[in-house]
Design a protein around this nucleic acid. Structure first.
Length: 820
RNA sequence: GCCCUGGUGGUGGAAUGGUAUACACGCAACACUUAAAAUGUUGUGAGGCUUGUCCUCAUGCGGGUUCGACUCCCGCCCUGGGCACCA
């Protein structure tokens, strides 16, 4: 008998699979579709990570099972290939990024195929392919045409050493991710995308999708919806209001001063009225230089400056209030201004520090706390009962809020308002290796006036894609402009409107641009006329099950939901499919290095899947990655543990190869097989791959010691449920056992409901909740019958002595508990 | 500070109100072998003695609910992740 030789077996079956159409998703099929997707990787030079293997294998198992269940399955793969590491490599070695990308994707594809993953390779996509990014650019044009893309001067993160603008994600603890230099702020004109327009829908529509609860929570927290009110504070002596957003209008009667953010427009507008304007301006300048790190440090001393000569009136009490500036009030949130009282810790501290009067108007339920609050010993931030609040005295905070809003609204001084933490999305990067933003700026047209976007025109659809030109140097310039700005021939272009000399936008898009919509391209990967064919989007979308890392919850996942909603709004996809791209979203746990620390080259603890495949075989790697622990949990790699999975595979190989197939399976083994079929099937759906594997191990352990073994049909069933996990092995044994076709094309076996029903059960006998005996009894015996058996038992008699049972708890077919 | 995870043998873990420690690793003994590896068999939470189909104790810590709690509730500690002056 031949020894188990994974290298030979695996190469053979991979050739058969990839040379046939078994993994191909079929357009125009009458079958029900199932669209499974794992996040496409960034093809780095390091090759596939064992973490990739884990989630790809898990979803490969689901894909293979779905095919066996009769679905038309789409399980595609592609490359999110724009990005910094490739660009940096190009800068260092002088190789064009596209060459590096080609090399890396070839390696990744080889590695994936060596694992036997059942991707449909005929639908492979690559975000750096001009045929692909033509549509990424097209989406940008549509965003612009619909008023969702605009230019704004914002401060960006600037690394003075690398001379490059950094995305927020590239700044680690205030330093440049690459060189560690302290990051500075620079003002720059950037393209922005109005994702904030979609904030409400992005929260509300979470109710209609099946995401892990923690994913929903994180997205909601990130978008940060707060319900409150916009309140107007009339400024003394001028026809002007300062607007404030508050969620705690129930505390309005205790408001004794107003605080503006340093950048608030009121200051510039009324600089002539502010007596100490020099001091205020100085404070504003100083606060600009406070780094983000210092500004977010909560232990930081509160600072502020009063705007002398300016007062406002509290719209509730009509009292005069001083106005201050403080840098803990943020320009970007709400209206950039707050009213201050003793019911906020920061306001409280500030009032104390500068001797500004403080007042309270909410009483906590706790008496001691109420006294302390009233005596201004400490700041009470919770909810309670109102006092000092005129006609609202005695109301609870929650009931007072709508009443106060209505009362002030009647005077035209307040309105309900929902505020979001979500900011618009900075879409410009000063890098080479990204999609060029397909916009043209014409000075002449800009002089015709209008908005900030005047003079900006999108590239005509027929001229898309705007291809990345070849450059000699990929490194950004000293001015912080993209290296594309140096190529005069590419930058200078005819204005699409007036025909005069105009210039291209030289910034490129962020990494997320290509992954915003890739799920749509898999559906129709070669379409050169449209982003996606309507009928195909209608058949395949939405993605039925999408898996990815938790680290993408607030970036990629949110961005792509937003872009899909936009495409749906403009009718770029079939409108019958709903405005959510993913029906179900789950997430995998990271695979750590041995000892529980993160795998990294510097630590030298990186596990290369190639090595594992070479040493143990792909099936062993697949099985181990599923067996190592719960799928959603972080888990350390353990090379010793891999051995156990290899042993299991050899056991199965030897059993099927050696045993006589003509015999009839004995009843108890057949029963266990059907229980295993049930368990494996259910566990796959719940992503409990580890227990699915262990149940197959248990089955094989029993099978191994059984004298008769399995009959042919039962072998077939077992190989079929094993095949999603260890597909090469299953395929080989399937053929060896003399079956026709391929194992992966079989139907998923049904378990026999009657067969797994138990006739006898092990019944637990407890006294006072402690296990004292176990008896084998027929299924369905009544309490009386069980009691009869139990009270006859010598053991129980001895344990009970002369004590009488006080109470007897009986759980049918499970347990009897005698309380004495 | 707030939100979300998780805490079980020497190790990865199993069990979501009813036999705690499945499965696997590791370890030990035995068999096979000149020997080793591989393989197979058996044992393996801790402690105790009267060595048993025995007893006691153990699921981060402290309380509670229950006939019965790893599982539910309250308080606390620790791990990992996210957000962080958000009005």
């Amino acid at each position: 008998m031949a020894k188990y030789n994974p290298r030979k077996i695996e190469a053979k079956w991979q050739e058969k699979w990839y040379g046939s159409s078994v993994f191909k998703a079929k357009n125009g099929s009458k079958k029900k579709k199932y669209y499974l997707m794992v996040e496409f990787p960034y093809p780095s030079g390091d090759g596939l990570h064992v973490g990739h293997c884990r989630s790809f294998t898990a979803f490969d198992i689901i894909a293979r099972k779905r095919r066996m269940q009769g679905y038309n399955v789409l399980y595609p793969m592609g490359w999110d290939a724009f990005g910094l590491p490739t660009e940096n490599y190009a800068i260092k070695k002088g190789v064009h990024p596209s060459v590096v990308t080609k090399k890396n994707t070839d390696n990744f594809r080889r590695q994936m195929k060596s694992l036997g993953l059942s991707f449909d390779w005929s639908r492979e996509i690559n975000t750096t392919d001009p045929k692909y990014y033509k549509w990424t650019q097209w989406i940008f044009v549509k965003l612009f045409e619909n008023g969702l893309a605009y230019k704004a001067k914002i401060s960006i993160n600037w690394c003075p050493s690398c001379k490059i603008g950094l995305a927020n994600e590239e700044v680690v603890a205030g330093n440049c991710e690459r060189c560690g230099t302290k990051v500075e702020k620079r003002e720059k004109d950037q393209w922005m995308i109005k994702i904030t327009n979609y904030a409400e829908r992005l929260i509300r529509d979470l109710d209609s999708v099946d995401y892990l609860e923690k994913i929903k929570t994180q997205q909601k927290d990130w978008i940060g919806e707060s319900h409150g009110a916009l309140v107007k504070f009339p400024v003394e002596g001028v026809e002007e209001f300062i607007e404030v957003f508050t969620t705690r209008i129930d505390t309005i009667f205790s408001g004794t001063f107003l605080i503006l953010s340093p950048g608030h427009s009121f200051i510039g507008k009324y600089k002539n009225k502010i007596e100490n304007i020099d001091e205020v301006f100085k404070y504003r300048e100083d606060s600009k230089n406070v780094s983000d790190m210092d500004r977010t440090n909560q232990d930081k001393e509160i600072t502020g400056v009063q705007l002398k000569g300016i007062t406002v009136r509290n719209p509730a009490t009509n009292e005069e209030m001083p106005v201050w500036v403080a840098d803990f009030v943020l320009e970007q949130y709400g209206t950039g201004a707050v009213f201050a009282d003793a019911h906020d810790k920061r306001d409280f501290k500030m009032g104390r520090k500068y001797g500004i009067p403080l007042r309270t108007s909410v009483r906590p339920d706790d008496e001691v706390l109420a006294q302390k609050t009233k005596n201004l010993e400490e700041s009470f931030e919770g909810e309670g009962t109102l006092y000092n609040s005129a006609q609202f005295d005695g109301l609870k905070s929650a009931e007072a809020r709508p009443k106060i809003i209505t009362w002030l609204a009647f005077k035209g001084l307040a309105q309900p308002k929902i505020s979001y933490k979500l900011r618009d999305w900075v879409f410009s990067r000063q890098h080479y290796w990204g999609e060029p933003i397909p916009m043209i700026y014409c000075k002449k047209c800009a002089s015709m006036g209008g908005s900030a976007e005047a003079g900006w025109m999108p590239v005509d659809e027929k001229d898309l894609p705007v291809k990345l030109p070849n450059v000699k140097k990929y490194k950004p310039t000293d001015t912080g402009e993209s290296p594309l700005a140096l190529i005069k021939k590419w930058v200078e272009v005819k204005c699409p409107k007036c025909g005069g000399l105009a210039q291209r936008e030289t910034d490129t898009m962020p990494n997320w641009a290509g992954s915003n919509w890739y799920y749509l391209r898999y559906v129709d990967p070669k379409n050169s006329k449209k982003l996606v064919d309507e009928a195909l989007s209608k058949y395949w979308m939405p993605v039925d099950w999408y898996n990815g890392g938790m680290e993408h919850t607030t970036l990629h996942l949110l961005y792509s939901r937003f872009i899909f909603k936009f495409l749906w709004d403009i009718g770029a996809v079939s409108t019958s499919i709903g405005s959510e791209p993913y029906k179900k979203r789950t997430s995998h746990g990271m695979v750590l290095g041995e000892g529980g620390i993160k795998m990294s080259k510097s630590k030298g603890n990186v596990i290369n899947p190639d090595t594992v495949v070479k040493q143990f075989g792909a099936d062993t790697l697949r099985l181990y990655e599923m067996f190592m622990g719960p799928f959603e949990q972080m888990i350390p790699w353990d090379t010793k543990g891999v051995v156990g999975c290899r042993r299991f595979i050899e056991k199965v190989y030897n059993l099927v190869t050696k045993k006589d197939l003509s015999s009839k399976t004995e009843e108890s083994l057949k029963k266990l097989l059907h229980k295993t079929i049930k368990k494996v099937g259910e566990d796959i759906e719940l992503m409990k791959f580890n227990t699915a594997v262990s149940s197959m191990m248990e089955f094989v352990n029993v099978w191994q010691v059984s004298e008769i073994g399995l009959e042919k049909k039962d072998i077939a069933d077992f190989l079929t449920i094993l095949s999603p996990f260890a597909p090469h092995l299953a395929e080989e044994l399937w053929r060896n056992a003399g079956f026709k076709e391929m194992c992966c094309e079989q139907k998923w076996p049904k378990y026999d409901e009657k067969l797994i029903e138990e006739k006898n059960i092990l019944l637990i006998v407890q006294i006072n909740g402690k296990v004292r005996d176990k008896i084998i009894a027929n299924v369905g015996l009544s309490q009386k019958e069980i009691e009869k058996i139990v009270f006859k038992s010598e053991k129980i008699k001895n344990l009970m002595g002369d004590k009488k049972p006080v109470k007897i708890i009986f759980v049918p077919n499970k347990l009897i508990n005698i309380v004495i």
